[in-house]
Design a binder for these strands. Structure first.
Length: 425
RNA sequence: GGAGAGAUGGCUGAGUGGUCGAAAGCACCGGUCUUGAAAACCGGCAGGGCGCUUAGUCGCCCUCGAGAGUUCGAAUCUCUCUCUCUCCGCCA
């Protein structure tokens, strides 16, 4: 959520930034609502001052037992206070409308974000490692996995439906190994604190991080409750500190959280229907930071490098792109995507997305910090990034480490997590 | 699921219709004292919004879990909701 005051005093900047995102939102109504709000508040405050003054007279009348004065004031005030209540109802209506507007306005892109319309305009800023060379035609992960008996899509369909998978034997073990490996790296080498949160959250939490109200359709909802399956650990972990004021000496707060993620994938019909790439349920290790506004972009760079380190340890070829203004997520001010090389599909695929939300989420969820004990609380900056998407990492391992005979070599760093095993065959 | 109790500032906790945005204690911050620290003493210390001819050690307004109601006036009375705790039952 943007700051109403800032929107009103920087109308052009906001309108311009919406255009950059390819959004055609007219904010003139919001501006006039804001004007109305201010006028009404001034009126109500004046009336209340008067009301409080007359009430003080009544107190005196009561203490002096002056009943005639008391009676005359009473009838006078009854209408007066009703009038105030009516104005307050009107104000409430206006404020609801204002928030309805603000909740649907995306974040303003950081000045360093390249201008563009779609993923075509994203800019590659880094490339690490080399494409692996094969003396044979590399296969898709679903072919590799099904032949090894470690991936089963058909039976998953039977018990749930499309966009689900069953991992079996060494497949399930590899998934678990990846989770464990990632958590160990981030907690032991990068200083993140591990969090195991609820996998279902309420509407308030979903609104705090920006999923709701605009993207309600993307989440699974438990009927008859206010519980929603989390689409990412970002939601519970960021909201961990909602309605809190943190001491600035604690910043940055760094959390890592492995959770399953649930996405309805509404609007993705026909996309990535085969394989593990796009599932209704997948595992992800998520990095979340609460940072001081003055260095949140440095924190974004280190978050990105923390995520990249996992791919480097696994020796997987990848590139990093900066998302352009038109391709960025709703809440983000700047996003890097990490894309891993998938030889079976002869392409780079997103495996992590690292964003700085600045104060967009912290304003919604009310997460503040205090510079020193005497200063006013300010909104801090929130960041997060996948470190990494586990299912897609498993895909990358299968496709990059496949052998001609259909077996898959286990990357060295994972072997301790696989009981010392070197190969899946 | 059944029965009961409760929700007040960073924390503990007083407050049952007006002078209460709120006692007291703890924590924290500043000061006096001290070679330094502690103790003691003094002072400060909730969040949000609006205004301004003086942008301030400024003025005003709101907020005692949330919402609605009674009343001239609600932390205090009534109703609804949410959450927490205790006991019993059930259960991974």
């Amino acid at each position: 959520m943007l700051d109403l005051k800032k929107v009103c005093s920087n109308i052009e900047v906001v309108q311009e930034s919406l255009k950059k995102r390819g959004q055609d939102i007219d904010i003139s109504e919001l501006i006039s609502l804001s004007e109305k709000r201010r006028e009404l508040i001034v009126k109500i405050q004046g009336a209340r001052t008067e009301l409080n003054r007359i009430n003080d007279e009544i107190k005196i009348a009561v203490s002096k037992k002056d009943n005639s004065l008391l009676e005359s004031r009473r009838s006078e005030l009854k209408n007066f206070s009703q009038n105030i209540k009516d104005m307050e109802k009107e104000l409430d209506k206006i404020e609801t409308e204002i928030s309805n507007h603000l909740m649907y306005i995306p974040n303003i892109p950081h000045f360093s974000v390249p201008l563009g319309k779609s993923s075509e305009d994203n800019q590659e800023i880094k490339r690490w490692g080399k494409k692996p060379e094969f003396s044979f035609e590399p296969k898709n992960h679903w072919d590799i996995g099904e032949r090894l008996g470690i991936l089963d899509f058909e039976r998953a369909t039977k018990i749930a439906g499309t966009r689900f998978a069953v991992l079996k034997g060494m497949g399930a073990r590899l998934e678990r190994a990846l989770i464990d490996f990632m958590l160990d790296v981030h907690t032991k080498e990068h200083g993140y604190t591990e969090i195991w949160p609820p996998l279902m959250v309420n509407t308030k939490a979903m609104t705090g991080t920006g999923q709701f109200p605009k993207f309600r359709e993307d989440a699974f909802h438990i009927e008859g409750t206010d519980y929603h399956l989390i689409p990412t650990a970002e939601v519970p972990v960021t909201n961990l500190h909602s309605d809190e004021i943190l001491d600035s000496s604690l910043l940055p707060v760094k959390y890592v959280s492995y959770t399953p993620c649930f996405r309805a994938e509404a609007g993705a019909a026909g996309k990535d229907t085969r394989g593990l790439i796009r599932q209704h349920q997948f595992n992800k290790v998520e990095l979340v930071k609460f940072a001081h506004p003055k260095n949140s972009y440095d924190e974004l760079e280190s978050l990105l490098s923390d995520a990249c380190s996992i791919l480097e340890k696994l020796n997987l070829h990848y590139r990093v792109v900066v998302l352009c203004t038109g391709d960025m997520g709703f809440s983000s001010a700047k996003t890097y995507d990490i894309e891993v090389w998938l030889p079976g599909q002869n392409t780079f695929r997103e495996i992590s997305s690292c964003s700085n939300f600045e104060d967009f989420q912290s304003r919604r969820a009310s997460i503040k910090f205090r510079e020193n004990p005497k200063s006013k609380p300010e909104f801090l900056h929130t960041l997060n990034g996948s470190g990494l998407a586990v299912g897609r990492t498993l895909v990358a391992v299968l496709e990059n480490y496949q052998n001609e005979d259909g077996s898959v070599t286990i990357p060295e760093v994972l072997r301790p997590y696989m009981g010392g095993r070197e190969i899946i065959s």
